[in-house]
Design a protein around this nucleic acid. Structure first.
Length: 470
RNA sequence: GGCCCCAUCGUCUAGCGGUCUAGGACGCUGCCCUUUCACGGCAGAAACACGGGUUCGAGUCCCGUUGGGGUCACCA
């Protein structure tokens, strides 16, 4: 075995979303990176729902997150954990730190805190809590208190972050943050550390908005004498304007990418992977290749902007390479089509899928197949149906009607014959024909349209347009 | 504002001191294919933020400037 990057402990990563909304795109990427890292090193990928905030956490959000992860193919090992189940454990640790003198009971009121904050502001110096209770051992019976970490004030803390590199912070910057609230509930800072430790998490891969928190968390870990996890803080995904992706950018849940826009999970996964990570010039990367190639050192340090166009293009690629039946089922699901229609959809799919980048577009392009006569003709298409065009349609109608076998070859021969006989280029005939058959200016090849629609429907649609429209 | 992080085409990125007159992809433009629209093919415009160092040599290392971002709760 070489002195490779293989970690000493069996890798355990986790994704720890708070269930206050859908699985957003940034969270999905964090989950993907954690999953990939664990799979790459044959480790474990755990899922922990951070439902500490009982008010904001909902069952719907939990389901949406689990659903989104399954859709993306990010399976977690074992059952999912719920942070709220470990409250007593969190409190136990806080009290142990209290006994050891690594934490203290702070009886400061909100008002006193506000006063300190104001004073700091007035003197134009950074605010850092300075509790008079830090070195008072005795309990003040009855009065409400919080348990604060007695953070080190000397020296500095260094984190060798797998993505950010070596980051150093002066310990004086770290305040005596709260471990246990006055109602006895743990804060996030305490809960993550305890849970990660108890779950045996070796690698904490998360958004770099947590980088500052890492130093606080490390203070707890060191106080407890627990093994320190390896950190990797990946840059956040930004919106087109460069600011953190948020609701105002139309930040969507993965369910919206699936249901609303009609994205394929492999496309979203591929896009997310390439956002902030690269492997040479490779763009199309399968899941297996991703597992083989993924590692933290290649993750970029600068935030990247979400590029919808690129995602769409990637999705188009995956659509073109997707199985026709699968695509047809997806379209049917979206448009509420039945078995017979799916059959037609499958036949049409080879022609349809090169023209769509999303399932949504695919559905729309398939609409003409299921329209009932007389079909709607959009304005642009209607403009094509001039009287000259109609007489051409007449001739076409005649020739098509005489065809013995309604197959592509015969269809093409019949149409070309009409164009030649009328002395017009094929396009002159094909466009009005397209308008009559699909109601649109664009569609799959006209012979394919004819073949797909079948004799009766085709002839009928043409006939519908032969009389002048009012 | 304090602290922390970042900086190659519009965007995602390759580049880990010389092979860079900087490569790929999306997007954009043109051409080809063609019954439309796509797909596909070909071609093109498009970047090392700025200033100092270090070095024989810097996109690559160091410092500063500028710009951007993150974070500063009894939220997670």
């Amino acid at each position: 075995m070489s002195a490779s990057s293989s970690p000493p402990r069996p890798v355990v990563t986790r994704f720890a979303p708070s269930p206050t909304g859908f699985l957003h795109i940034g969270g999905a990427r964090t989950a993907l990176f954690n999953w990939l890292y664990a799979r790459h090193f044959s480790g474990k990928f755990l899922l922990r729902i951070e439902d500490t905030d009982k008010v904001r956490s909902t069952k719907e959000a939990i389901d949406a997150i689990l659903d989104g992860m399954r859709w993306l193919g990010l399976d977690w090992d074992g059952h999912e954990y719920y942070q709220s189940q470990f409250w007593s454990r969190h409190a136990e640790i806080a009290h142990r730190m209290l006994e050891r003198g690594q934490a203290y009971r702070c009886y400061m009121t909100q008002e006193e805190l506000a006063q300190q904050r104001e004073a700091a502001q007035r003197d134009r110096r950074p605010f850092r809590i300075d509790s008079p209770w830090r070195d008072v051992g005795a309990e003040q019976g009855g009065k409400p208190f919080v348990i604060r970490l007695k953070a080190p004030r000397e020296g500095e803390t260094v984190i060798d972050d797998q993505v950010q590199g070596r980051v150093t912070v002066q310990n004086a910057e770290i305040d005596d943050f709260i471990l246990l609230r006055s109602d006895g509930s743990p804060t996030y800072m305490l809960a993550v550390v305890v849970d990660d430790h108890d779950m045996g998490v070796t690698h904490v891969i998360r958004g770099d908005d947590h980088l500052n928190n890492a130093f606080r968390q490390l203070a707890i870990i060191r106080a407890m004498g627990w093994p320190e996890p390896t950190y990797a803080h990946v840059p956040l995904i930004h919106g087109p304007d460069g600011a953190k992706l948020s609701k105002r950018h139309g930040a969507l849940g993965v369910d919206a990418y699936r249901d609303g826009l009609g994205m394929l999970p492999e496309a979203v996964g591929n896009y997310l992977l390439r956002l902030g990570w690269g492997h040479g010039d490779d763009e199309i990367i399968s899941r297996d290749q991703a597992i083989e190639w993924f590692d933290l050192p290649q993750v970029g340090k600068s935030p990247s902007r979400f590029d919808f166009k690129k995602l769409e293009n990637l999705n188009g690629h995956y659509i073109r390479n997707a199985d026709d039946q699968r695509l047809a089922d997806l379209v049917a699901q979206r448009s509420g089509l039945g078995p017979e229609q799916i059959e037609l959809l499958v036949r049409a799919m080879p022609e349809l899928k090169s023209r769509a980048n999303t399932i949504k577009q695919l559905s729309e392009s398939a609409d003409f197949l299921f329209a009932s006569r007389p079909i709607d003709i959009d304005d642009a298409a209607a403009a094509l149906l001039t009287s000259d065009a109609r007489s051409l349609l007449h001739a076409a109608q005649r020739n098509l009607g005489a065809i013995a076998n309604w197959d592509a070859a015969s269809l093409e021969a019949a149409i070309r014959e009409v164009a030649e006989a009328s002395g017009v280029k094929l396009g002159k005939l094909a466009q009005p024909l397209r308008a009559a058959l699909t109601g649109r200016m664009t569609s799959p090849g006209i012979f394919d349209v004819l073949a797909l629609l079948g004799r009766d429907e085709s002839l009928g649609r043409i006939a519908d347009q032969m009389e002048p429209r009012e």
